[in-house]
Nucleic acid binder design. Structure first.
Length: 860
DNA sequence: GAGCACTGC
């Protein structure tokens, strides 16, 4: 189609007019409308750029940047790199003459962080903004800031296929939204009428049943089934192949871990109708022709970063409405289609509209460092389009401080007050020159001091992209790996290096790579990155000379970058580990480092299993020697005798303990003497927490404490100190003093210690003033109970009270006593403070009733 | 029966 006939040209006048008036614009238009190629040209042709200014078009993918530049160059009629150019990592085709420049997201953000005025840039176009990549969000926010301050003439255009334009519009206000409609084939969406319970009927069985049902209603077109992962896919394929109604179909699995030829087989065209069972690869990246039926289970595995624990998670979640629409659209590429959703319409209404933007899901440390380099210290106050969780920002600040990239964040602070924002340090600025995660940047700087920049640069390059070592390979591949690569006991990084060297030597040949289970494409990308890192390192004055590789030096660099992921093996026999920060994890099966007792994991991921159980896996492991901890982090390594309470022995013991931050590396009982006050304090803690019970501390003791407190209250002239909760702890501590174990304190008398609370004079009167028992006029003794509040209470059965009259008092008549009259069964029937009154008023009625119920008792 | 898919400097 000639460019002028593209649907986007309906908007030409509006685009130009709006940008002249406001400098900000949102364009909403679907794929195929021509917006990516034509809007930059409109800006250029209508004089919206300064005399030699350029329009920078932001693309999320390198391939798109390159292809779009090529197309636009053809349309403009120049060679690429002339008026129209592109710039992506490791590749730049621009010149002095370039006025339309397609770039990928990282390029623009770097340009902004090194030149805050964006000299030479007249306009920025953000394409595919709905994908909401982290760098897209940040770049837009920075562009708006720059426009508001130093560059009011800068034009900003945000474009997307689908967009929640409301939030964006108010973020960019004042700003117009222009909409262009697209064209596509209709897809009829069907829902289940009843919620499926995948616990009872597995998702693969439901999917196969729906396939069979729809197959009976259609006579042509292929099927595409979406599943969350490889395991569910293989079960679905089995279920489909076992279904007689589907025997005319051929069925293929499709996911990223499959070898390329199997992926090709799934996508190829056949005479017979086919069913492809796929992960999300088929949602966006792969297009499959001929599909008219989509069966969508509505689930996907989603990767996130949990800032609370500093752990990556990969768990099965419900997909959003936008993602479900994208999947449904796969049925309407070539003809009208059907999409069956394995959930109800009602449940659909409760789903999230969009996936969470990256800024809510990813580790933010690199972005925070970039912002601080631009002078934005308080990143919480940055005008985020969508503000990340405070926890995520805090986590990033902490990591950067640990790495020395940011001046230390004060760790002891009051609950609720935000941390003081740290400032970027000189080391932080040097780190930022390297386009890698701050952990690896820090390792490169450490490597300079230890003479191992080359291997560390290679390690950084090896971990940039996807892992290129296939998992779960067959036994023969495993054996081939071991034969070719040898054993490794020090670091998974070293094994990866050997894998890459092997692939590099074999010129990334498919055959050689397949033999060892290597993704050829992935390993091919390592070399150029390695070169780039070495180039930057050299420019930064690091020592990049070839040296004999010192494995110890390299492993120390790994420790410098990942000290917060130090782990200790719990037992020689298990893979379970304990990490710094009270986390737990399991050594991954595919790690070669199965024997180390102390290690650092460069990858910590939480993975959801089939039955919903969750596992934290430690991967990309490096064995660590304990003395390095002291060498690299002298302030965090402790080797001291500590005194602690041993729960199983119920005893305070001295231990020789070696610790890194809060991770105990080893604790051994020590013959050292235990200081008695420390022992008493620890035992007291256990007693007060209710874990240990002092048998002698009974109800009588509690009553005694109440009596002391009431004595202080009612007889202030005695100057008795009342006994508070804190005093109680002091008393327990006094009782425990001199003892080490529970067996020493369990039956230890407590009253002697408690009696010491009072002076001799006070002791002399307490039993007199506030006695435990009171002798009444008839000669009988009755118990008196004291409570924290209210008068003392004398309780006695009616028969015990015969012959007693009037009121009772204690303490020389100062404290009136309540009398609780009990029935023969000890149940209270009346509370009174005057017995004479009771005998006269209530007793006759009580007697009538009770004497009938208890005829064998005496009733006067 | 441990583990989606991407992408960028």
């Amino acid at each position: 189609m000639p460019p002028r006939e593209l649907p986007i040209y309906e908007l030409e006048n509006a685009v130009v007019g709006s940008l002249r008036a406001q400098g900000r614009l949102i364009v909403q238009a679907p794929t195929g409308s021509g917006k990516s190629t034509q809007i930059p040209q409109m800006l250029f042709n209508h004089g919206l750029l300064a005399e030699r200014g350029e329009v920078v078009v932001l693309q999320p993918r390198r391939l798109a940047a390159r292809m779009l530049a090529k197309r636009v160059a053809e349309e403009v009629g120049t060679r690429i790199g002339d008026v129209v150019g592109y710039q992506i990592r490791l590749e730049s085709r621009v010149s002095e003459k370039t006025r339309i420049r397609f770039v990928t997201e990282g390029i623009l953000l770097r340009q902004m962080s090194f030149d805050a005025t964006l000299r030479g840039v007249s306009a920025i176009v953000f394409d595919e903004f709905h994908e909401r990549h982290l760098y897209g969000d940040i770049s837009l926010a920075r562009a708006v800031q720059i426009q508001q301050t130093t560059r009011p003439d800068l034009k900003i255009v945000v474009m997307s296929a689908t967009l929640d334009a409301g939030a964006l519009k108010s973020y960019l206000a004042p700003c117009e939204v222009l909409v262009s409609q697209g064209r596509s084939f209709p897809v009829r969406v069907e829902y289940l009428t009843k919620t499926a319970n995948f616990e009872q009927e597995p998702v693969w069985d439901v999917a196969a049943r729906e396939c069979a049902r729809v197959a009976g209603q259609t006579s042509s077109g292929d099927f595409l089934v979406f599943m969350p992962g490889a395991y569910e896919i293989s079960r679905t394929v089995q279920a489909i192949q076992g279904d007689r109604a589907l025997r005319d179909f051929i069925c293929f699995p499709l996911h990223g871990e499959l070898p390329p030829e199997q992926q090709d087989r799934a996508v190829a065209r056949y005479e017979a109708r086919k069913i492809i069972v796929s992960t999300n690869v088929a949602e966006t990246s792969l297009t499959i022709d001929g599909v008219t039926v989509v069966i969508d289970c509505g689930l996907a595995r989603v990767a996130r970063f949990d800032p609370n624990r500093g752990i990556n998670t990969l768990l099965i979640e419900k997909i959003s409405v936008a993602s479900a629409d994208q999947r449904a659209g796969r049925a309407g590429r070539t003809a009208p289609g059907v999409c069956v959703r394995l959930w109800t319409e009602r449940e659909h209404g409760g789903r999230a509209l969009q996936e969470l933007p990256e800024v809510k899901r990813l580790d933010l440390s690199e972005v925070v460092l970039t912002l601080k380099a631009s002078g934005i210290d308080d990143v919480g106050a940055f005008p985020w389009l969508e503000k990340p969780d405070a926890k995520g920002l805090e986590r990033a600040e902490m990591l950067l401080a640990d790495l020395g990239a940011v001046s230390a964040v004060s760790k002891e602070r009051d609950e609720g007050t935000p941390p003081t924002p740290g400032r970027i340090t000189e080391v932080g600025r040097r780190m930022l020159r390297f386009p890698v995660h701050p952990r690896y940047a820090r390792m490169l700087i450490e490597a300079d001091a230890r003479g191992c920049v080359r291997p560390v640069a290679l390690m950084a390059a090896l971990t940039q992209g996807r892992s290129f070592l296939m998992r779960g390979v067959p036994k023969d591949v495993e054996d081939a790996r071991e034969d070719t690569l040898g054993e490794e006991h020090e670091s998974d990084f070293f094994l990866l290096m050997r894998v890459w060297r092997f692939a590099d030597k074999a010129s990334y040949s498919m055959d050689a790579c397949r033999r060892l289970g290597i993704h050829a494409q992935g390993s091919r990308a390592v070399g150029p990155l390695f070169e780039q890192f070495l180039e930057i390192a050299e420019k930064e004055g690091l020592d990049v000379s070839e040296q004999r590789v010192d494995g110890v030096a390299v492993r120390k660099c790994v420790l410098a970058g990942f000290s917060d992921q130090l782990a200790k093996r719990l037992d020689a026999g298990t893979l379970r580990c304990e990490l710094v920060h009270k986390r737990k994890g399991t050594l991954a099966r595919e790690s070669a480092i199965q024997k180390a007792t102390l290690l650092v994991a460069a990858e910590v991921s939480e993975i959801g299993g089939r039955g919903g159980e969750v596992n934290t896996l430690l991967n990309l492991v490096t064995a660590i020697e304990e003395p390095w901890l002291k060498e690299l982090f002298p302030d965090d390594y402790v080797n001291a005798t500590t005194v602690s309470y041993d729960e199983s022995a119920k005893r305070v013991v001295a231990r020789r303990e070696r610790r890194f931050r809060d991770l105990v590396i080893e604790a051994k009982a020590s013959a050292d003497e235990v200081p008695l006050d420390a022992a008493a304090a620890l035992l007291t803690q256990q007693v007060l927490a209710g874990n240990l019970k002092l048998e002698a501390w009974d109800e009588t003791v509690e009553q005694w404490i109440v009596r002391v407190n009431r004595l202080a209250e009612w007889f202030p002239e005695l100057e008795v100190n009342s006994l508070t909760e804190a005093d109680r702890a002091t008393l327990v501590e006094q009782i425990c003093y001199g003892e080490l174990g529970y067996k020493d304190i369990r039956d230890k008398p407590v009253m002697p210690t408690l009696r010491d609370w009072l002076t001799a004079e006070q002791l002399a009167v307490i039993d007199d003033y506030l006695p435990e028992r009171l002798t009444m006029a008839n000669g009988r003794k009755s118990r008196i109970s004291y409570a924290k509040e209210g008068p003392p209470v004398l309780s006695a059965r009616i028969q015990e009270l015969y012959g007693v009259e009037g009121k009772f008092t204690l303490g020389n008549g100062r404290v009136p006593v309540k009398i609780e009259v009990l029935a023969p069964n000890q149940r209270p029937i009346q509370v009174t403070d005057d017995l004479t009154n009771f005998w006269r008023e209530q007793y006759p009625k009580v007697k009538a009733e009770l004497s009938r119920r208890y005829p064998r008792h005496e009733w006067r």
